[in-house]
Amino acid sequence: MLTPLGAGALLAGVTLAGALVDAFGNHGPGLVLGICLVAGSLLAVALVHARHVRLVLPMPPLAYAVAAAFAGLVGDSGGTGGTVGLATSASRWLSSGFVAMATATLLVAAVAVVRATTTRAR
């Protein structure tokens, strides 16, 4: 079983790997990052120690924000000059990850509830 820090590191590692692929292959946050986020979140919430399962809950959006900023600034920096450019770029990056982020957060919440319930039952 992982510590909360270990679960966070696992999620961050898998998500950043997806960000790397998207940065160089997709010129910005895309599908690979989204899939890695969901997979990483599921692994993290499944492997973290049952006592700390709730701590994984806020991790998916935060992991995505960091990874998307990385993928965007590396792979899609063409339009980021100036306030308007950066704001519109950030909007694009955030919007492209909404479905993955919401899915990951809901799945993490569902798994967390199941694990917490089964642990208490024992």
């Binding site: 701590l55 806020p58 959006p61 935060l62």
Partner: peptide, 23 residues
């Protein structure tokens, strides 16, 4: 933990709004 939850909620909200606008 509360701060992390608030930040996550904020990111999720901003993402949702952006998604709506872009759609």
């Amino acid at each position: 933990y509360a701060f992390a939850c608030a930040a996550a909620a904020l990111v999720l909200l901003a993402s949702g709004v952006s998604y709506f606008v872009v759609s």
